[in-house]
Amino acid sequence: MVIERPRWWIYGLVAVIGLAILVPFIWMVLTALMTTDQTLRVPPTIIPLPPTLDGVHTVFNKLPFFRLLSNTFLVSVGRALATLVISALAAYALAIVKVPGARIVLVLVLTLIMVPGDIFIIPNFSIIAGLHLTNTLVALALPNIFDVFGVFLLYQFFRGMPRELIEAARIDGASHLRILFTIVVPVSRSGLIALAILTVLNEWKELLWPIVVNRDVDQLTLGPGIALLRGAAVTDWNVLMAAGAMAALPMIVIYLLLQKQFVSSMARSGLK
Results as ranks from 00 to 15, higher is better:
residue 29 V to I: 06
residue 111 T to I: 13
residue 219 Q to R: 14
residue 161 M to V: 03
residue 40 L to Y: 09
residue 3 I to D: 13
residue 119 I to D: 05
residue 176 H to M: 00
residue 245 A to N: 08
residue 238 N to L: 02
residue 157 F to L: 07
residue 9 W to G: 14
residue 99 V to G: 02
residue 104 I to N: 15
residue 13 L to N: 10
residue 127 I to R: 11
residue 31 T to M: 08
residue 179 I to T: 10
residue 228 L to V: 09
residue 8 W to Q: 13
residue 72 T to P: 07
residue 39 T to D: 03
residue 123 P to I: 03
residue 194 A to I: 08
residue 138 V to F: 03
residue 210 P to E: 00
residue 243 A to L: 07
residue 131 L to T: 05
residue 42 V to R: 15
residue 20 A to C: 12
residue 148 V to P: 15
residue 226 I to T: 09
residue 61 N to Q: 15
residue 233 A to E: 12
residue 232 A to S: 12
residue 122 I to E: 06
residue 222 L to W: 01
residue 192 L to V: 07
residue 242 A to H: 08
residue 90 A to N: 01
residue 242 A to Q: 13
residue 198 L to W: 02
residue 249 L to M: 13
residue 61 N to A: 11
residue 94 L to Q: 01
residue 14 V to M: 12
residue 111 T to Q: 12
residue 257 L to G: 15
residue 196 A to M: 05
residue 182 T to M: 08
residue 155 Y to S: 05
residue 41 R to K: 15
residue 164 E to A: 13
residue 178 R to K: 10
residue 267 A to E: 13
residue 218 D to P: 08
residue 190 S to C: 00
residue 259 Q to N: 14
residue 201 L to W: 02
residue 259 Q to V: 07
residue 214 N to M: 01
residue 211 I to T: 11
residue 174 A to E: 07
residue 51 P to Y: 00
residue 249 L to H: 08
residue 3 I to Y: 09
residue 50 P to H: 08
residue 123 P to E: 00
residue 156 Q to N: 11
residue 133 L to I: 10
residue 80 A to M: 09
residue 167 E to Q: 11
residue 213 V to H: 01
residue 140 L to I: 10
residue 270 G to Y: 08
residue 184 V to R: 01
residue 214 N to L: 03
residue 233 A to R: 15
residue 181 F to A: 06
residue 160 G to I: 04
residue 31 T to R: 11
residue 5 R to H: 04
residue 150 G to H: 05
residue 39 T to W: 06
residue 158 F to E: 04
residue 4 E to M: 09
residue 70 S to A: 14
residue 184 V to K: 06
residue 200 V to F: 00
residue 78 G to R: 10
residue 266 M to H: 09
residue 177 L to G: 07
residue 251 M to N: 11
residue 173 G to I: 02
residue 147 D to L: 05
residue 224 P to T: 05
residue 178 R to I: 00
residue 62 K to L: 05
residue 134 T to V: 10
residue 246 M to R: 14
residue 86 I to D: 00
residue 271 L to R: 15
residue 83 T to N: 02
residue 17 I to Q: 09
residue 226 I to N: 12
residue 46 I to Q: 10
residue 271 L to A: 13
residue 251 M to L: 11
residue 119 I to T: 14
residue 192 L to A: 04
residue 139 A to P: 01
residue 209 W to A: 07
residue 85 V to Y: 04
residue 265 S to M: 05
residue 101 G to I: 02
residue 198 L to E: 07
residue 256 L to V: 12
residue 190 S to D: 02
residue 156 Q to E: 02
residue 195 L to V: 03
residue 89 L to H: 02
